[in-house]
């Protein structure tokens, strides 16, 4: 047969009195950003006079377009990664640098710490884009058909990355050859051997089924990554003090909820792979040597000082 019957009671309720904020992002409706983050935000804001209307799956544009809309006031809120914020304020991109963070706690402390606050203030000053919150997105690892433990193992390996310059820099700094490619072409390209490897957080690897066409997941952990929740100046300044407090509180809860969801998924999927007969989990990765060779390149970037500052602050 074709399809399945639909349960009619699954329709969302709308509070007609509350001020509605449109929040858009590029992740699909089943992704933790929507399912945990945005869902928590909606829940927490109930009765606060604010409500979130969410637009997942790049309905209102890709990350750069969403940021442009937020900056000009056409959109109330957008979720965007550091590389995209870096287009507006160079230093914001540092959060996507390879081997910047020791662990997720280090990411959370830094993103909410003083150093980044200054950067985000500069962003607000220069571009009217206000960073409201940082949500943990995942830790990126490299999958391949061989075990990768040192920079030498990357030699001659063609690795797919998203088409953003910093991702390419990160991989080449670790010794690999980066090939930009759209995500939905990667599965076939891996299967056919057009590319040898790819890198992503564990939940993405699992939903895109890359574990079916790759032999090893090497726990390189080269990027401990977050996404920023942004709003524009007109929206932010239009909020009353109570609304701001409510929004900030809800954002904090949502950030915690997202982190919990992502970490839970990362652990359970990795556990499954470790016990299963499919993709092998290679934990024997010399992260220190990879981080050392990456660090040299990172310190030459425009935000090199910031990179060092964040690492030594730990």
């Amino acid at each position: 047969g074709v399809g399945t019957a639909v349960d009619r009671d699954s329709v969302e309720e709308v509070d007609t009195n509350a001020k509605t904020l449109r929040l858009a992002h590029v992740y699909d409706a089943g992704h933790p950003v929507e399912e945990c983050g945005v869902a928590t935000l909606k829940e927490e804001l109930q009765g606060s006079g604010l409500q979130i209307q969410s637009f997942p799956s790049a309905q209102l544009g890709n990350e750069s377009e969403l940021l442009e809309q937020v900056a000009s006031g056409s959109l109330d809120m957008a979720v965007a990664g550091p590389s995209f914020l870096g287009v507006w304020e160079e230093n914001a991109a540092v959060l996507d640098a390879a081997y910047l963070f020791e662990d997720v706690d280090h990411f959370v402390e830094t993103a909410n710490g003083e150093v980044m606050q200054t950067v985000f203030d500069d962003l607000y000053e220069s571009s009217d884009i206000k960073v409201l919150s940082n949500w943990y997105y995942g830790t990126r690892h490299v999958t391949a058909n061989k075990e990768i433990s040192t920079a030498a193992d990357f030699n001659g390996l063609k690795i797919r990355t998203p088409n953003a310059p910093l991702y390419l820099t990160n991989i080449s700094a670790m010794g690999g050859t980066a090939t930009p490619m759209a995500l939905d072409e990667v599965y076939l390209a891996l299967q056919q051997g057009v590319i040898d490897a790819q890198e992503n957080p564990v939940p993405t690897i699992s939903t895109a089924k890359f574990n079916e066409v790759q032999d090893y997941i090497n726990l390189t952990g080269h990027m401990i990554q977050g996404v920023e929740i942004t709003t524009g100046r007109t929206v932010y300044e239009g909020l009353s003090d109570e609304e701001r407090t409510a929004l900030e509180g809800a954002m904090q809860t949502a950030a915690d909820a997202t982190r919990e969801c992502v970490e839970e998924q990362e652990q359970s999927i990795l556990e499954e792979w470790k016990t299963g007969s499919g993709i092998q989990v290679n934990e024997d990765v010399d992260r220190e040597s990879l981080a050392a060779s990456a660090g040299e390149v990172m310190r030459e970037q425009p935000w090199g000082d910031l990179y060092e500052q964040i690492q030594t602050a730990r």
Binding site: N163, P165, L168, T177, A178, T179, P180
Partner: peptide
């Protein structure tokens, strides 16, 4: 660039 030079140009697509 992908098949002959073995290192693809990152700017052709854009």
């Amino acid at each position: 660039s992908r098949y002959i030079f073995n290192s693809p140009f990152s700017w052709t697509e854009e």
